[in-house]
Design a protein around this nucleic acid. Structure first.
Length: 403
RNA sequence: GGGAGAAUUCCCGAGCGGCCAAAGGGGGCAGACUGUAAAUCUGUUGCAUUAGCUUCGGUGGUCCGAAUCCACCUUCUCCCA
């Protein structure tokens, strides 16, 4: 087992903030002395069913700590989720039934354990204890803080200033999350920087009931493939942990050059010293593309077998580096009355290759459609299609025709 | 409880009753370029493309004609108590 100082180094890798380092070191020393693993808490909202590398940042960090011998407790926020957060666009979110929550949680866990060590993880639902509180308990809970303190939170402050409504119940979110920490006697709570307020509230509450305060460990928000916005499903700039090796590898290659090291820090388990070395090589003029090849291989390897990674690399080389036509493209069997491209347009629309006929025409006009590697114009649309003809629509869509 | 305002195409956001399928920006898509990208430049971005057709919260109405005017409804927001 590593010394507390060595552990600290690994835990601190990529972390945005730790509140605070000395306390953490003390906890690690205690843990070693008493031979007692630390309890690492992570709260998850059951409404986001698809886990991507952005979510995985905290999960990876927990995994790293599990490898150091500590224990993770995942809190599924079923109670919190049932109330429904009015922020954002999803208005009037339907309260999930108990069954739906369990179901979601199951698929959730499946994905979580692509990263975490199952043996060293406990999954809990916070309704277990939150649903038992009565109104008096709730008032007491509320009495531990003030409106002014609530409004310190950036999110609330901005909304208040901009006159965006804040529901009273939203004030309870941090409190409920804090209560989870008390219930679990958490030693460390992980979270993205957006969780700063909530996690710190856990410290406050633990202190007020005489518990040792948890360490707050904040991981930066992983920037998405566009290099500016945070990784999120709705922005489409994400890499899902359940994606195929091919897709994952390709997407990692789309990471902007100046975010390569960030990804090494947040999306891999590489040792801090290794990352520093790579950063140094980049600085000394190593081709970022080659570094990214390494990155893509490592990240893909975290979620897929060696064999699949090798296949993905081959696929990538063929399809993108050499711009060849990939060999596993969808095939469409032509019916006898379908002779030309014009004839199959309705089918292309139906199968989602192109949203409308207008769009298709537009693409042709813009030289975005190729038949067997040659650009076609509107006059070619009525030419006869042959067996094995390959149509390329836009950059990414290929279709092979079979008679 | 009382009063005021808002709702526009994927998003934000313009829009004297005719010249509005609707400015501008963002995003998307395509082309050029490239080290995969990014950045940049160009084009494009309701459907059909000859006319034409369906859009501007909903339902009715005024008018030769409505995103633009009127009525009611729905939803959202703000202010006062």
């Amino acid at each position: 087992m590593l010394t507390p100082n060595e552990q600290l180094k690994i835990i601190a890798k990529g972390a945005e903030t730790i509140v605070n380092q000395e306390e953490l070191l003390a906890k690690l020393q205690n843990s070693e002395k008493e031979n007692r693993p630390l309890i690492i808490k992570l709260g998850l909202d059951p409404s986001a069913p698809d886990i991507h590398l952005g979510h995985a940042v905290v999960l990876r960090k927990i995994k790293q700590m599990q490898d150091l011998g500590h224990r993770a407790v995942i809190v599924i926020g079923d109670f919190t989720g049932k109330i429904g957060d009015p922020t954002g666009k999803a208005k009037g979110r339907v309260a999930l039934s108990d069954e739906a929550v369990r179901e979601n949680a199951a698929t959730y866990c499946e994905q979580i354990f692509k990263v975490l060590d199952k043996e060293k993880t406990t999954v809990r639902f916070n309704s277990e204890w939150l649903s038992k509180l009565n109104f008096e308990d709730v008032i007491r809970l509320a009495a531990t803080t003030t409106v002014a303190r609530m409004l310190e939170r950036d999110d609330f402050q901005n909304r208040y200033k901009n006159r965006v409504p804040i529901g009273i119940h939203e004030f309870f979110y941090p409190l409920m999350q804090a209560y989870d920490s008390v219930e679990l006697k958490a030693d460390i709570e992980l979270g993205g920087t957006d969780q700063t307020f909530n996690v710190l509230m856990g410290r406050t509450l633990q202190k007020s009931v005489g518990q040792q305060e948890q360490i707050a460990l904040f991981m930066p928000i992983l920037v998405g493939l566009d290099g500016t916005e945070k990784m999120s499903k709705s922005l489409g700039n994400y890499i899902g942990v359940s994606e195929s090796a091919e897709s994952m590898y390709k997407k990692v290659m789309e990471v902007p050059d100046d975010k390569i090291i960030t990804y090494f820090e947040l999306a891999t388990d590489e040792h801090p010293d290794t990352v520093a070395e790579i950063a140094n090589e980049l600085k000394n003029g190593k081709n970022p593309r080659d570094v990214k090849f390494t990155l893509a291989k490592i990240i893909t390897g975290l979620y897929h077998s060696n064999e699949d990674v090798l296949k993905a690399i081959e696929y990538y080389d063929a399809a993108f580096s050499k711009k060849a036509i990939p060999d596993d493209i969808p095939q469409i069997t032509l019916k006898s009355e379908q002779n030309s491209i014009t004839d199959i347009i309705p089918m292309l629309i139906e199968d989602g290759f192109v949203p409308s006929k207008s769009e298709f025409t537009r693409l042709v006009k813009q030289n975005g459609v190729q038949l067997n590697g040659e650009k076609i114009d509107l006059s070619k649309l009525n030419d006869t299609l042959n067996n094995d003809d390959v149509l390329k629509i836009g950059k990414k869509k290929f279709i092979k025709f079979v008679r």
